[in-house]
Design a protein around this nucleic acid. Structure first.
Length: 593
DNA sequence: CTTAGGG
DNA sequence: CCCTAAG
């Protein structure tokens, strides 16, 4: 209604492409909010990506601006081809392809569209049939999208744009609104392209990687970030923003809200599809099998009805996204809004907690994985151990053994830990059964943060496997540089007194891993090491370097008898860093004596 | 109890 | 991380 072209089609069924153009840039035309034609879209090529491709829309825009540029020439040529109907090629829609749709899984439409890949227009029809186009008067939405549905409704062999469609555009608003309402996810306003950019900067992997990653398994958080805001746009014709400004999100949201208010009900909001859930859950699950095990058992014991609350789990999990530790900074993806809506507790708690040592890093933690979202997951949890060593084992006996063993160990460990806070209890008290589950999940998350204050335990069981934060690694390195390799208990005492977890053994193990990562240890198969190195989580090179230095300094085996003499002798050659550490170490030893 | 090492 | 064996 506002600034969008009220109509873009001609009476003869063609489309005024020029009107679709938005903000010409550098001889290119931004196609955001622009749509195209269905032209000769092959019957079996309903996939948006294909469409996009066939019209020369480039996808490279995502990483930068999240926009797609359509060469004007191409567009022009296309315009002549436009004959009947059109597709709305929303930028993300195009580029995201299935991803985008998956992000949308909340409602049938998405699923149906997803199926377009397989080339059946039936999907479209069925999906639309589910949402019959109501005739209402209020109209704020753009006709574009609604017309998309129109087209879908049409039989496969007659994709025609009824000129009347343009006239009754307003009447279609209702449906669009409905769709909007059905969206399972509200994109957080704070989630902007800028954030995404930041993410990119921080993480070593490119967005493309992420995308592809999400392809096989599920939507990666980052993808979601993209998807959600876009989804909003998709429903809102008012999509202005190529810039992905937060304001946009707000605007669109509010617009929708008002619109829906005007057109109450008629459609009950749909729950996220199972598929959607699956997609979300997958990435995390992959990384934290272990956690899952524990959590599953916990959940199982605590609340039999976990399955019923899958959705909640998902929500909570979304709060914390896997952050990259590649650099000293980790990204915190603002998915808070989602959580806020679904869950009473805000993720903020976790974040705050996580910043021990003043380190603003939010660990990605596989931990979050815990929330089993799907039946499948639940089943797996309860019935099968995903541990590496359990790969071949399906037998219950094995499982039992493992559980018992771990349980015992955990208990033991817990005893040594700082007394758990009452957060969990509070949580439980204040919550309905559903919330209880959430609390548990949150508990896990909290647990992940190595703050002495928050070593909560769930039912006496503790989650293990906390990711090592860079800060921790640094501390470890400092400790090693001070005390040398092998004095894990001391290092633990002095550097990790704050973190109840991280036993001396853990330190030792971590150091071992660091050595591997630094590629300085395995003399035999250095190549293998290196290869694995790539798989390693991007560790700050500075850390790796220090590890190397320390490793050379203190041969891992106890062979560092002459350590001190060595140091003195070599200190001039050593980096200032090491020298300083040595100095400190000496001082400390002196003090102790 | 602490380490080293294998799993 | 877990588990075990060795000082």
């Amino acid at each position: 209604m506002e600034n969008g072209p009220p109509t873009i089609g001609f009476e003869d069924g063609t489309i005024d492409v020029e009107r679709l153009l938005v903000e010409p840039q550098d001889g290119h035309v931004s196609v955001d909010s622009v749509m195209c034609f269905n032209e000769k879209i092959p019957e079996n090529v309903m996939d948006m990506e294909d469409v996009t491709r066939s019209f020369g829309v480039t996808n490279n825009g995502i990483a930068q601006e999240g926009e797609h540029i359509l060469n004007r020439d191409v567009l022009d040529s296309v315009s002549s081809e436009v004959e009947v109907g059109y597709f709305r090629l929303q930028n993300d829609f195009c580029s995201m392809g299935e991803e985008y749709l998956l992000g949308y899984t909340g409602f049938e439409f998405a699923e149906s569209i997803t199926n377009l890949d397989y080339g059946s227009s039936e999907c479209l029809q069925t999906s639309v049939s589910d949402n019959p186009v109501p005739s209402s008067s209020a109209g704020m939405d753009t006709p574009w999208k609604t017309d998309l549905f129109r087209i879908m409704e049409l039989p496969n062999d007659q994709l025609n744009v009824d000129s009347s469609d343009f006239g009754e555009i307003p009447s279609l608003c209702h449906e669009s609104e409905t769709l909007a309402e059905e969206k399972p996810l509200k994109s957080p306003i704070s989630c902007t392209l800028q954030d995404i950019g930041k993410f990119q900067d921080i993480s070593s992997c490119s967005f493309q990687d992420i995308l592809s990653d999400g392809n096989d398994t599920s939507l990666s958080p980052s993808v979601e970030m993209f998807c959600n805001p876009k989804s909003e746009k998709n429903d809102e014709f008012r999509v202005t923003g190529q810039n992905g400004e937060a304001n946009n999100a707000l605007e669109t949201t509010s617009t929708r809200a008002s619109c829906s208010g005007a057109l109450p009900t008629q459609k009950r909001s749909r729950k996220p599809t199972q598929r959607y859930i699956d997609e979300l859950a997958d990435p995390i699950s992959r990384h934290s099998k272990r956690r899952r095990e524990v959590s599953s058992s916990i959940l199982k014991h605590k609340s039999p009805g976990v399955k019923d609350h899958k959705k909640c789990h998902i929500r909570s999990r979304e709060v914390i996204l896997p952050a990259e530790e590649s650099s000293v900074v980790a990204i915190q993806v603002p998915f808070g809004s989602l959580v806020h809506k679904e869950c009473p507790k805000s993720p903020a708690d976790d974040m705050v907690r996580c910043s021990d040592r003043g380190n603003p890093i939010i660990k990605s933690k596989d931990n979050l994985v815990t929330p089993e979202n799907q039946k499948r997951r639940d089943e797996c949890n309860t019935a099968v151990r995903l541990k590496k060593r359990d790969d071949n084992i399906v037998a219950a006996s094995q499982k039992k053994r493992d559980e018992n063993g771990t349980a015992a160990h955990l208990k033991k460990r817990d005893d040594r830990l700082v007394a758990p806070s009452k957060k969990k209890i509070d949580c439980v008290l204040a919550a309905s059964p559903k919330k209880k589950v959430d609390c548990l999940i949150r508990q896990e998350k909290i647990d992940d943060y190595p703050t002495a204050e928050s070593p909560e335990e769930v039912n006496g069981r503790r989650k293990h496997h906390r990711l090592w934060t860079i800060a921790e690694v640094k501390k470890l390195i400092d400790g090693v540089s001070e005390y040398g390799v092998g004095r894990w208990s001391r290092i633990k005492k002095l550097f990790f007194s704050a973190s109840a977890h991280r036993t001396s053994v853990d330190l030792k193990d971590k150091w071992r891993n660091l050595l591997k990562a630094s590629g300085l240890q395995g003399q035999g198969n250095r190549q293998g090491e290196k290869k694995r190195n790539l798989a390693w989580r991007p560790l700050p090179k500075s850390i790796l370097r220090r590890v190397c230095e320390l490793a050379t300094m203190y041969p891992y085996p106890k062979g560092r008898k002459h350590k001190i003499a060595h140091i003195h002798r070599d200190s001039p050659d050593r980096s200032t860093d090491i020298t300083l550490n040595d100095y400190r170490k000496i001082l400390r030893s002196i003090n102790e004596n």
